[in-house]
Design a binder for these strands. Structure first.
Ligand SMILES: [Mn+2]
Ligand SMILES: [Mn+2]
Ligand SMILES: [Mn+2]
Ligand SMILES: [Mn+2]
Lengths: 227, 227
DNA sequence: GTATAAACTTAGATGTATCTAACAAATAAG
DNA sequence: CTTATTTGTTAGATACATCTAAGTTTATAC
């Protein structure tokens, strides 16, 4: 049934990184992958050679890298485990959303399908993780909703924060300190064209200036413009 | 504070195996360790060389192996994580006691003190794991209660099952099928001297014959002989 | 007490995951 | 178009975790 050839944790991390850098569809430059994983270029080369032999990636010399169908599925299933873990840590173990990414980075490699399906069950099959990213299903299919960045919105836009782009502890602590969490209502009061700073009204009450760097990492939906 | 030189999962498994084979106090033969870990003898040699350099084991050529003080502490802390995990899986995630050992074998290597201390808190600082083994404290101290085996008990002994010697899935499923679980009352009705088979009365109702192999793996306490 | 067996060690090989140094191709600049 | 610069590849080295084959030491048997 399960045709069990298993990949190492390292291989899993490569597949995941490629998936995230390509959105599961496009290609990624070796350079970009090397920076994302924090390894030197030749390391990418030797790993691509292995993943190529296993039929998980496509790569010809001097060309960008992409996942094969089976590579894509494997990557999505690892991401499923990562995001279920994050949700479990937040919902069932009372961790803050800023604490869970590092732990999930390790837990995602546990070899035990039932362990993650138990989490899924206890959580009631959640569709998003604590950072608003979609959780792939058991077949490796993932909703590819592409939320706009706050920084791409215009003056007077009425928005709701639905996800963050980045789960680093520092960034999320920054948001915590300003009581910015998923679901928050926002209105763009002004955009400074010089540096991209935005003045935002939160929940129709609180006003705050956010830098371009921060606005790039906040993903939003438009609130229905009727009314 | 934490002087963070970290060991690989493999090194952690060796430390744990030595601890369990020596009860944290005595010595173990390389042969025995090699069989316990399922690796060949030279593998033990090269790992002992590394652990020796790290100051975690003591070993001179052709002599048995023991843990140093710091090796002992590290081993105990890994065992703490293993057993807390097993308890968490049973108590908070509704796994059966026969399912948890393999998962804990992987989870024990997660690098995140807070992850395990959260489990500990949620569980109310349990003193035993689901198989009745003691959970070491945060300083690596462990209650070394040495329960007798059922197979060492005599006819008419009145006992309570407090732990099992072995957490293999097969053995625990065998016990499940016979509704044998921790806390169960037992009375030794007879011992067959030829093969060590014992006839046991459970909960003053149910009678069952258990083989020597099984009785060797059941750890008991004497019920107070008064009354 | 020597011979045989068992346990242990050393040497050398393999595969994974990484690196540096040196070279090659593609891209950008002038 | 030729020259830098950036990007990518190859070759060779190192550390970890394991093995097999070949010796050594210790223990057991006669
Ligand atoms: Mn994450
Ligand atoms: Mn990971
Ligand atoms: Mn266990
Ligand atoms: Mn383990």
């Amino acid at each position: 049934m399960y045709f069990c050839f298993v990949n190492s944790n390292t291989e899993e991390n490569y597949l995941k990184a490629i998936f995230l850098l390509t959105d599961g569809v496009s290609e990624v430059q070796p350079k970009e992958l090397s920076e994302s994983l924090g390894v030197k270029m030749p390391t990418i080369n030797s790993m691509m050679k292995r993943l190529l032999e296993k039929g998980l990636v496509e790569h010809t010399s001097y060309r960008p890298i992409s996942l094969t169908k089976s590579g894509k599925k494997m990557a999505a299933l690892i991401i499923r485990k990562h995001r279920l873990t994050e949700m479990f840590l937040v919902e069932k173990m009372e961790f803050g959303w800023e604490e869970v990414h590092e732990i999930a980075e390790q837990v995602e490699h546990i070899k035990s399908p039932i362990f993650f399906e138990k989490m899924n069950e206890m959580l009631g099959s959640p569709k998003q993780d604590p950072h608003g990213s979609s959780i792939p299903d058991l077949n490796g299919n993932i909703d590819n909703v592409n939320y706009p960045k706050l920084s791409d919105c215009e003056k007077n836009a009425e928005l709701r924060l639905v996800a963050v782009n980045n789960s680093s502890e520092d960034f999320l602590k920054f948001l915590n300190a300003r009581k910015i969490s998923l679901g928050l209502r926002m209105k763009v009061l002004s955009v400074e064209s010089f540096d991209g700073n935005m003045t935002i009204l939160f929940n129709e009450k609180r006003e705050e200036v956010l830098s371009k760097i921060v606005c790039d990492r906040l993903l939003v939906t438009q609130l229905n413009p009727s009314k």
